[in-house]
Each structure stands twice: as structure tokens, then as C-alpha cells.
Design a protein around this nucleic acid. Structure first.
Length: 382
RNA sequence: GCGUCGGUGGCAGAGUGGUCAAUUGCACUAGACUGUAAAUCUAGCGCCCAUCGGGCUACGUAGGUUCGAAUCCUACCCGGCGCA
């Protein structure tokens, strides 16, 4: 069970300041939900994640089902105890893997397609490594080739065993350039699965339904209305947003307009630095993104002076750059204690501490930013 | 001194008469990454012009054999090892 309270609604935008109350504590919204796919934020022990101002994490059902299996997690007392995370948790349903291990992999594409692409994927078309049916999805495990099946029932059962505070309905995250017929069919399936998820769930966990519909306004609105009509505790907004990222904000506005105001809205898998403000202004309460942690491992630091590729030799040798912290406006222990030059050295020497420090900083940076945004909403400035 | 093995691009290390500007790894440079198959992937990496491509100089040094040599021969220089 969760409770959602809106503390303030902006007059300048659709932004809202809120609190999600769970049995593991409060989540002040809007907030980033860092990603802990395999029950860990890569590179950081839970104690350190806790010090990045992180309020809630999202863990992945698909990955934990494969390894170590939900029974093991349950044996250890559920996710919170297993991973020593005392604050709130979400689990994703595995729906994203329908895309990322399916068409995403086949075509080497991401959710947001930047180049102009013709509609490639037609109704009935199937990805190579998995088969999508009306009941669910047959996966071929990338770990050992074993066949496994994940549908709404299976996903909910696994998520119940994992025991996060908030769980998501099993959906299909459709590929960015599926044609309308494909998307319509996929949406029907996702809607059907949403009802099954609600029927099957026995636990007291909060269940969020996921709005899909691709880049089509009518499908998005239809999906938002459909999900709103069901007794979900909150909503996720997922999928692709067309060939241009600029389509995303209008889409969020269509959808958020239809969703009930008193329930939390989670945007799935979005969170570049420049996306955050418009997303919050559109009325999103929470959003998860691998960006801060993922890019950290690739040597990228997010700072108040922009995105820095810390592996570049200039940070090592430049007298000015080299001695500075990553971000003089940041108050994290990395910025308080370490220089750019040192971090660059660690990255180039392939020392794990490099990505570790960047992961910490990036999470702190994003969380501090959201804290600031919450402050602005409170003061009526946003 | 004699014998022997070897000297290849920033490094390591393939190639051992044409398909070699030279496999591969590292390093370096650039790019990508948004519900994580991701501490990953892609590309470039002798010099010069260039769109495909073309030209030049290169495999210790100097000669030679050959239509053609990083690859064979000779001498020299340098290094490892063995024997004096």
C-alpha cells in the first residue's frame, strides 16, 4: 500500500510537489529513481547510494528472475533485506526487456530514434530472440539460451516474491518505428495484460499500470483513459516517443491530462539532464533512468558546467582543469575531496574507483538537482 | 673472439618471395549510450592529397638476387644466449 499526497500544484506549469508514503518511508516528489537492475546500483554499496540523496530505487524483475531467481530473493527475506536497502523500492515488470532484447537488439535501436527511419516493423512481425503472443512473451535467455516465458501472471508472481513497495504491470514496450497497426495491436495486448495483473495480484504492494500508444495522440489518450479506469495505485508512462524527442513533452501533456490527479505518475526510462525540467513541468512525479549510473561507468560526469567526458587527457594535464573538482557547485564527497585529474587518472588506469566516484557524484548531482526543483515548486518559481 | 638465435609501426607481438601500409592485443584519438545483455560498443590510428580513390616513404643499416623482397643472399651495426 502506498499513499500519495500532493502538497502543492504549480500555477506556472503542471508540475506538482508531492509525497509518496510507503511502509519503507517517504518519497518526496518529483524525484529521480536510480536504477538497480540486478538488485544493486552498479558500483555502489547500498550504504553509499543512501548518501546520494536517493529516495527510492527500481530493480528489474526479468534479470532477478533469471538470476538468482525470485525464490532465492524471497528466501533472503525479500529485496529490501537481500540488498540491504531500507528505503522504498520499485520493480519493473520485465516489459522493457520485450523491447530491449527483442526489436531493440535486432535493429540496434534505442527507445528514441534520432535518425529518420521509415516504418519498419509491421503488425505480426516478431523479433529474433523472443516471441510475443497474446498471453505473454517467450524469451531466449541471453545467459544460457534457456527458454522462458513471461506474461502478466508470471511477472506479478515474481514481483510479489521480490516484494518491492511499488510494482508495475507487465507491458510491451513497442519499438520506435512500428507502424500504427503494430502499435494498435500491441496496445490491445498491453491493456489486456494490465487487467490480468490487477486480477492476479494478491499482495498489498502498490501496482502501477503502464500507458503505451507510441507516437499517436489518439492511442496515447485511449491508453491513458483505459488505465485510469482501472484501480491502479499509480501509472507508468512507457514506450517510445516517436522519431523526435521533442514529441515527448506534448505526449506527456496529453497523457497526464487524462490520468487522475491524485495518483502518482512515473515516466519510465527518461532522464537526460535537459529532459528533467520539461518532464517535471508536464506533471510527472517520478522517473527512472540509467543515465547517471550508466554514463558514469563510461567516464561521463554530469555537472553544473555541463557533461564532461572525464576520460579525456585534458583533465589530466591542463593545469586549471586538472586541479579543480568535478563541480565546484557540488557538495558531494567526491567534489569535496578529489580533483578532476585524479578521477581522470583512475579512469585511464582502469581502476574501478574511477567509475565508482563518478557514479556517486552523478547520482548526487541529479538528486540535488531534483531537490532544487522541488524547492522551486514550493516557492512557486516553477 | 667463436658459435647461435634474433632485430617489424608508440609498446608487445604475428607475418617469412607477390593477395602487406603489414594480423592481433595494448596505448592513443573521436563518437555513441535515456524502464541496463552496457566498467560497454563503434570508428580512426606512417605521411600527403582525396568522394570512390590515388601518391609517397616504410619492417636495424648498406648493398645484392628477382618481373617483384618485411620475407632470399652478402657485409656491417645492435641485443639475448652458449662456449672460450
Amino acid at each position: 500500500m502506498i499513499e500519495f499526497k500532493i502538497l502543492k500544484k504549480s500555477k506556472k506549469s503542471n508540475a506538482r510537489l508531492g509525497i509518496i508514503k510507503t511502509s519503507h518511508g517517504l518519497v518526496e516528489t518529483p524525484t529521480l529513481v536510480p536504477v538497480a537492475t540486478q538488485a544493486t546500483v552498479k558500483m555502489l554499496p547500498a550504504e553509499l547510494v543512501n548518501e546520494t540523496k536517493t529516495q527510492i530505487l527500481i530493480v528489474n524483475t526479468f534479470h532477478l528472475h533469471l538470476k538468482p531467481g525470485e525464490k532465492i530473493v524471497k528466501f533472503h527475506g525479500g529485496l529490501h533485506r537481500f540488498m540491504n536497502w531500507k528505503k522504498p523500492l520499485m520493480t519493473d515488470s520485465g516489459g522493457f526487456q520485450v523491447f530491449s532484447l527483442g526489436f531493440g537488439m535486432d535493429f540496434g535501436i534505442n527507445k528514441i530514434v534520432k535518425s529518420k527511419t521509415k516504418e519498419l516493423i509491421k503488425r505480426g512481425q516478431q523479433p529474433k530472440l523472443l516471441k510475443i503472443t497474446n498471453d505473454g512473451v517467450f524469451f531466449t535467455s541471453y545467459l544460457d539460451g534457456q527458454k522462458l516465458f513471461l506474461g502478466p501472471k508470471e511477472s506479478i508472481k515474481i514481483q510479489e516474491a521480490l516484494d518491492a513497495d511499488i510494482i508495475f504491470a507487465f507491458d510491451e514496450c513497442p519499438p520506435p518505428f512500428a507502424n500504427r497497426a503494430y502499435l494498435k495491436n500491441s496496445l490491445k495486448r498491453t491493456h489486456n495484460w494490465a487487467k490480468i495483473c490487477l486480477d492476479v495480484k494478491k499482495s498489498k504492494q502498490a501496482l502501477f499500470g503502464i500507458v503505451q500508444g507510441g507516437r499517436y495522440k489518439d492511442l496515447r489518450i485511449e491508453s491513458a483513459k483505459f488505465m485510469s479506469s482501472l484501480p491502479f495505485d499509480g501509472f507508468g508512462i512507457g514506450g517510445e516517443f516517436g522519431n523526435k524527442k521533442s514529441n515527448m513533452i506534448p505526449m506527456l501533456k496529453w497523457v497526464n491530462k487524462e490520468l487522475p490527479e491524485n495518483k502518482p505518475r512515473h515516466l519510465l526510462g527518461i532522464g537526460h539532464r535537459e529532459d528533467i525540467l520539461p518532464v517535471v513541468k508536464s506533471g510527472i512525479d517520478t522517473f527512472d533512468c540509467t543515465l547517471p549510473t550508466h554514463y558514469a561507468r563510461h567516464g561521463v560526469a554530469f555537472t553544473s558546467r555541463g557533461r564532461l567526458d572525464m576520460a579525456k587527457s585534458m583533465f589530466l594535464s591542463s593545469r586549471i582543469e586538472g586541479k579543480k573538482p568535478l563541480d565546484k557547485n557540488c557538495n558531494c564527497f567526491v567534489c569535496n575531496n578529489y580533483s578532476c585529474g585524479y578521477i581522470t587518472h583512475l579512469l585511464r588506469a582502469r581502476e574501478a574507483t574511477g567509475p565508482e566516484l563518478l557514479t556517486f557524484h552523478n547520482l548526487y548531482f541529479f538528486n540535488a538537482l531534483l531537490e532544487k526543483i522541488r524547492g522551486m515548486i514550493k516557492l512557486g518559481k516553477l
